[in-house]
Amino acid sequence: MVEKGTTAMSETPDTEAVKRSRVATRRKLVEEAAPVFVHKGLEAASVADLCAAAGFTRGAFYSNFESKTELAVAVYQYRVNHLVDLLHAEVDRQLAREVPMAEVLGFVLQSLTGFTEDGAWQGFRLEMHLAADRDEQLRLAVDEQYERIVAAVAEVLATVGRHGVSYTLPKTDLARLLIAVWDGELLRLGRRMTSEGGIGARLISATWEAFTVISPEAEAGGSGTR
């Protein structure tokens, strides 16, 4: 008999374990979805395809997402979260090592679309942009994540600007311009972007060089103005 005010341990579910399991399931579905969406297309990919890729049942899928559109939005948010965190962390690390500012800016630019060597991510972004024209939910998600990337790049440009770098455009405008150039090449080349002689990288480097002034100290790897 269980006394009033107490709970039998055998009847108490391990809620923390359940939460961890659900988080792990959701994350696995998100991590495995991008290649499926790229291979099949957002519209043609089925819930069964997505479940098979992650190794889960339809029940597990619908316990976490109402639809594959909701999953696609979660994939985009997840990858942008990772990109923003990585971008800030890596730039801070390079600044602490007093890497020449041109190299720091180069890293920022190569990271604009996130993991430039990751063909699945590039292909997924293209799929999202194409599908956004036909789906309001996806359009809002794409717009929201684009603004997050712009804000992250502008913040990093501001951080770099405190180390001997100045710009002839407002930082947010420069961030949008750089992303526009990179995305233009991404749309043209898709997953071939990193194998076409670095055309995208050269164009975007020429763009930021046109609007950036690096002090001699910062160019040499000095700390510049703290």
Score class of each variant (00 low, 15 high):
residue 69 T to G: 04
residue 70 E to C: 02
residue 71 L to D: 00
residue 71 L to V: 15
residue 72 A to Y: 05
residue 72 A to C: 04
residue 76 Y to T: 07
residue 76 Y to I: 01
residue 76 Y to V: 04
residue 81 N to T: 10
residue 82 H to R: 07
residue 83 L to S: 07
residue 83 L to N: 09
residue 85 D to L: 07
residue 86 L to S: 12
residue 86 L to W: 11
residue 86 L to E: 15
residue 87 L to F: 03
residue 87 L to D: 00
residue 87 L to N: 01
residue 89 A to E: 06
residue 91 V to R: 02
residue 92 D to V: 09
residue 94 Q to Y: 12
residue 94 Q to K: 14
residue 96 A to V: 14
residue 96 A to K: 01
residue 97 R to V: 10
residue 97 R to C: 08
residue 98 E to V: 04
residue 99 V to E: 10
residue 99 V to K: 01
residue 101 M to R: 11
residue 101 M to F: 01
residue 102 A to P: 15
residue 102 A to D: 05
residue 103 E to N: 11
residue 104 V to I: 07
residue 104 V to Q: 03
residue 104 V to S: 03
residue 106 G to H: 03
residue 106 G to D: 13
residue 108 V to L: 13
residue 108 V to H: 00
residue 110 Q to A: 10
residue 112 L to F: 02
residue 112 L to V: 04
residue 117 E to C: 08
residue 117 E to Q: 07
residue 118 D to Q: 08
residue 119 G to R: 05
residue 121 W to T: 13
residue 122 Q to A: 05
residue 123 G to C: 14
residue 123 G to H: 04
residue 123 G to M: 06
residue 124 F to E: 00
residue 129 H to A: 13
residue 129 H to E: 12
residue 130 L to G: 09
residue 131 A to E: 11
residue 132 A to M: 11
residue 132 A to C: 07
residue 132 A to Q: 05
residue 133 D to F: 06
residue 134 R to V: 03
residue 135 D to K: 02
residue 135 D to R: 02
residue 136 E to H: 08
residue 136 E to D: 12
residue 138 L to A: 02
residue 139 R to W: 07
residue 140 L to C: 08
residue 143 D to Y: 14
residue 145 Q to C: 07
residue 146 Y to Q: 15
residue 146 Y to N: 12
residue 147 E to F: 08
residue 147 E to L: 06
residue 147 E to G: 05
residue 152 A to C: 02
residue 152 A to T: 04
residue 153 V to M: 11
residue 153 V to G: 05
residue 157 L to I: 00
residue 159 T to F: 02
residue 159 T to D: 08
residue 161 G to Q: 04
residue 161 G to I: 02
residue 161 G to Y: 01
residue 163 H to F: 04
residue 164 G to P: 09
residue 167 Y to L: 12
residue 168 T to I: 11
residue 169 L to N: 02
residue 170 P to C: 14
residue 171 K to Q: 13
residue 171 K to S: 10
residue 172 T to F: 06
residue 173 D to M: 15
residue 174 L to A: 15
residue 174 L to Y: 01
residue 175 A to S: 10
